[in-house]
Amino acid sequence: MALTTSAHNKTKAWFQGMIAYGTYTIGSTVTQMPIYSLTLTGDVITLEFYLAETVAGTITKFQVIDKDGAVWDDQPDSVVKPALNGLLITFKYTLTRV
């Protein structure tokens, strides 16, 4: 049995409400970053974080943290971020009914 449209919509809303913040790692330092935007378009949830130009260094990991403090998504990376520009980090999730 498939989810109803109502259950599918509630699941998307629940997902949106579970995300608390993001983190990035430079060296051994993990720093929190607030949610810049969280949008729902159809079945796609787009989560964005913004790092200001004051942040600089080699970022080795981005994480999405839920309201319980647990890691929701863990993305190893290697981004050299200069102090000249900001950086927009985007996570996209598609919730589909099967």
Rank of each mutant, 00 (worst) to 15 (best):
S6A: 15
A7D: 11
H8S: 10
H8T: 10
N9C: 01
K10S: 14
T11C: 02
T11G: 08
K12S: 01
A13Y: 00
A13Q: 05
A13S: 11
A13M: 05
A13H: 03
A13F: 00
W14A: 13
W14I: 08
W14H: 06
F15G: 02
F15V: 09
Q16V: 13
G17S: 12
G17I: 09
G17R: 06
M18S: 14
M18E: 15
M18R: 11
I19P: 04
A20N: 10
Y21D: 11
Y21G: 00
G22H: 10
T23P: 01
T23C: 04
T23W: 04
T23S: 05
Y24I: 13
Y24A: 14
Y24P: 11
Y24S: 12
Y24W: 13
T25R: 13
I26P: 03
I26K: 07
G27Y: 01
S28V: 05
T29G: 11
T29I: 14
T29W: 10
V30K: 13
T31H: 00
T31R: 05
T31P: 00
Q32N: 15
M33L: 10
M33F: 05
M33S: 10
I35S: 04
I35G: 02
Y36M: 03
S37N: 09
S37F: 00
L38G: 01
T39I: 08
T39K: 12
L40Q: 10
L40P: 01
L40I: 07
L40M: 04
L40N: 03
T41I: 09
T41W: 01
G42A: 05
G42D: 12
G42W: 08
G42I: 09
G42Y: 01
D43K: 03
D43R: 02
I45T: 11
I45S: 00
I45W: 02
T46S: 14
T46C: 01
F49W: 07
Y50N: 07
L51R: 09
L51Q: 11
A52R: 10
A52V: 06
A52E: 10
A52T: 15
E53K: 14
E53N: 15
E53P: 12
T54D: 14
T54C: 07
V55E: 13
V55H: 02
V55Y: 04
V55A: 04
V55T: 14
A56N: 04
A56D: 08
A56M: 00
G57D: 01
G57S: 00
G57M: 01
G57H: 00
T58C: 01
T58F: 00
I59D: 02
I59V: 06
K61Y: 12
K61A: 11
K61G: 07
F62V: 04
V64P: 03
V64M: 14
I65S: 09
I65V: 15
D66G: 01
D66P: 03
D68K: 13
G69N: 08
A70Y: 12
V71D: 07
V71C: 06
V71Q: 06
V71S: 06
W72L: 15
W72N: 12
W72Q: 15
D73K: 14
D73S: 13
D73P: 00
